[in-house]
Design a protein around this nucleic acid. Structure first.
Lengths: 217, 217
DNA sequence: TATATTTTGTACTGAAATGTACAATAATAT
DNA sequence: ATATTATTGTACATTTCAGTACAAAATATA
């Protein structure tokens, strides 16, 4: 039941005992994520995963646990990478309007940037199992909450710099902005084009966070 | 391969020949939808469905075809009902701002109105299989497109009545409005409360389609 | 009453999936 | 060298699932 994965028993020379693993943990997770991303949680078999990760099933169990555990690690892996990219997109651009557009555009490159457009991993594959799998449901809720927080921070930053004046609550506006992200996630997976999606987020940002009028002096 | 379901061989008295079906087609679809809605497409077995529909598997095949066909019929069934309700919500309220809020609120009662909150059937269960199932992907795209059209119509109506002046393209604004719906669909399934979701759509509508200023005379 | 038609329900087949036992392998440590 | 440790890989057991064959049941029609 309570198994312990990944006992990192390295000695002081950094060399592990026993037969060395054939896989690299990070790339294996990336490969697992790719399969889950395309097929979803339930439709992905351990054989699919083992094949994609170039491992056999017992090794896979030994390294990552069962399918659910592996799925959650894969989702966390994808989330870390995406959060990094979206966070830097928000931070690099000083103008709020432009920062948000950069944010959405970076998301689109992830959502559309595979051989086939897959949308958002979490939104498009974690929703299905969520009602019957409390852990996955909480993972999904956590991912959404952290994006809320990132957007709130960015809005507050703009506000404190006088670059933005919220009509209502900044918390609520952040959630409206994430709504656009969710829609891009879904529409990308439904097959809509990059240009069509670009129009959506441009319209949204311009409607919700209009460009600053030139400073009056 | 090409089977024909539901041969409606009624004579002029409206009486069918052969043993009468135990199931009612409409309620059976509703029951199937409930199962798919909670578990998703791939995680639902034909045994789950047969049990929920109070049929045995051969009858199920005879009446609705295989799992994919049944799923698509169930999704279409749910979509018809939801579209009806959302359409009337949009039409009954004369003021655009209030009409949109009624629209979202009606959606929320559907998304949250079961024993466990399930969000939107299409958004939360059709996205997962979409990349590997072209038919389901197209169904999903069609459902999204029809909501776009309904919102566009409503915006144009308000515009032609002078009750609304779009900043940009009405087509784009409609898609931004549907983005809010998508987010409600996902967040409901992730476990967020009715009041939390209400705040989101209220903020969105007020930001995107502000209440009309009192007519100037 | 006999026949045709349609659905029901049992039972079966074959395929796919999960999870594990156990021997073989490859490295470090003594 | 020998022991220890950890992973790999084969093989297997069990369950679940999709799909179907076929007889029984229930109705209309001739």
């Amino acid at each position: 039941m309570a198994q312990i994965f990944m006992r990192i028993s390295t000695n002081m020379t950094g060399k592990r005992r026993g037969r060395p693993p054939k896989y690299d943990r990070d790339t294996a997770l990336a490969q697992a994520a790719e399969v889950f991303w395309e097929r979803g949680f339930a439709a992905t078999s351990l054989d699919d995963l083992a094949q994609a990760m170039n491992m056999n099933r017992p090794s896979l169990y030994n390294a990552f646990g069962d399918k659910e555990t592996l799925y959650r690690q894969a989702m966390a892996w994808v989330d870390r990478r995406l959060s990094d990219q979206l966070g830097t997109a928000l931070d690099t651009e000083p103008d709020l309007n432009r920062a948000l557009k950069a944010f959405y555009d970076k998301a689109l490159t992830v959502y559309l940037g595979r051989t086939t457009p897959l949308g958002c991993f979490a939104i498009c594959t974690a929703t299905a199992p969520a009602p019957r799998n409390e852990a996955i449901r909480r993972d999904l809720a956590g991912i959404i909450a952290r994006v809320d927080e990132a957007l709130i921070r960015r809005l507050q930053q703009a506000q404190s710099q006088g670059a933005y004046q919220a009509s209502g609550s900044v918390h609520d506006i952040a959630r409206v902005l994430q709504a656009v992200l969710h829609s891009l996630a879904v529409r990308a997976r439904a097959g809509e084009s990059h240009t069509a999606l670009e129009k959506i987020y441009n319209a949204a940002v311009d409607a919700i966070v209009p460009e600053m009028p030139p400073l009056q002096n």
